[in-house]
């Protein structure tokens, strides 16, 4: 069922005024659903800062920042919520003030615990869990916990100018508009003469999509054309899994990354098809790319919470070389 929350109280005049333009786009019902949603954002890097900005502006009920890491110099490339003066301080706490300023109607809080120390039941406190900077093992574990409690799960990352988002929404129900052109009879008050007019009739349809967990996309065999970024994703995730961190800007051309590249090229017989990508900018997080990938992620969270419009199923990859943003549906059984 697409929840019919009749019990939700009406928007205040202040909310109606603030959210006017977006209500005109996604409707009042979506806005009401947004303002009852509790979101967990883990890993307060530049990419998650963009996601935070987008959903706080949209008017969700609460956003919890979870991060045990401190603000590093690399974060200053794109983490606009944490002031430079907070270098060395906890990233979640350092981001709190500016995040709250974006929209006083949203409850924003910080949690400085390690995500690994959180029990599975922690995630059931949220409608949406969105994580970044996690290893494959962490992603698998959190994804499974979210599945267990029917929590919508998102993960995404930005490496330099490359980025991705992934969604496992379990069984997701939503509504979307279907537009049909219909020839209209001229109404009696209308212009005389036989001029038939076409009018778009909009109906709303309910749909359901079943998602697949992150596990299933890790060893995709058959990919659509021009999906080289998928291999880059695998390389960057493998590197992080092995070293527990991402390569730093000072480590451009480092051997460890090259080894991961070679491993994937050999595994998939890629020859030189991903050379452009792997020699590109993959270090720290570049602000415009955080904006692009974080914008897509933010919109996906909004779509999911409002149960309006079809969410992307399931992998979004941004190719910095071509500026193409692609949706791959991987891991189908």
């Amino acid at each position: 069922m697409v929840d019919q929350r009749d019990d939700i109280i009406e928007l205040t005049d202040a909310e109606a005024e603030l959210y006017d333009r977006q209500i005109r786009l996604w409707g009042l019902e979506s806005q009401k659903r947004l303002r009852s949603a509790n979101i967990l954002l883990a890993g307060l890097n530049g990419f998650i800062a963009e996601v935070a900005k987008n959903i706080i502006l949209a008017g969700v009920k609460s956003v919890t920042f979870l991060d045990h890491r401190d603000l590093r110099i690399e974060d200053t490339c794109s983490q606009f919520l944490a002031p430079k003066t907070q270098l060395g301080k906890n990233r979640a706490e350092a981001s709190l003030q500016k995040a709250q300023n974006l929209n006083p109607m949203v409850v924003v809080s910080a949690d400085t615990e390690k995500i690994d120390d959180k029990p599975d039941s922690f995630f059931k406190n949220f409608d949406v869990v969105c994580v970044s900077e996690c290893t494959i093992t962490q992603i698998q574990r959190i994804n499974a916990a979210c599945r267990k409690y029917n929590v919508k799960f998102f993960v995404g990352d930005v490496w330099g100018s490359f980025g991705y988002t992934f969604a496992d929404l379990g069984t997701h129900e939503f509504v979307e508009d279907v537009v049909q052109s219909k020839k209209m009879q001229v109404s009696e008050g209308g212009e005389p003469g036989g001029k038939g007019k076409f009018e778009n009739i909009v109906t709303t349809v309910k749909r359901t999509i079943k998602f697949t967990p992150f596990d299933n996309i890790l060893n995709a065999q058959k990919l659509p054309k021009e999906s080289e970024t998928y291999y880059l994703l695998r390389i960057m995730l493998n590197y992080r899994e092995k070293y527990g961190t991402d390569p730093l800007p000072s480590e451009r051309d480092n051997e460890n990354l090259k080894n991961e590249v070679t491993a994937i090229i050999e595994k998939y017989n890629l020859c030189d098809s991903i050379n452009n990508l792997v020699t590109g900018d993959l270090y720290a997080q570049i602000s415009p790319v955080c904006a692009i990938v974080g914008g897509v992620m933010g919109q996906e969270i909004i779509k999911t919470v409002s149960q309006k419009e079809a969410p992307h199923n399931n992998l979004f990859l941004f190719n910095p070389d071509t500026m193409c943003g692609k949706i791959l549906n991987l891991g189908k059984k």
Binding site: Q22, K53, S287, C290, I292, G295, V296, G298
Partner: peptide
């Protein structure tokens, strides 16, 4: 013309690239 934060963010990102 309804305008939202996410679309603007994505487009501005492409502008700077």
């Amino acid at each position: 013309i309804p305008a939202i934060a996410t679309t603007n963010a994505i487009i501005a990102g492409v502008v700077v690239l």
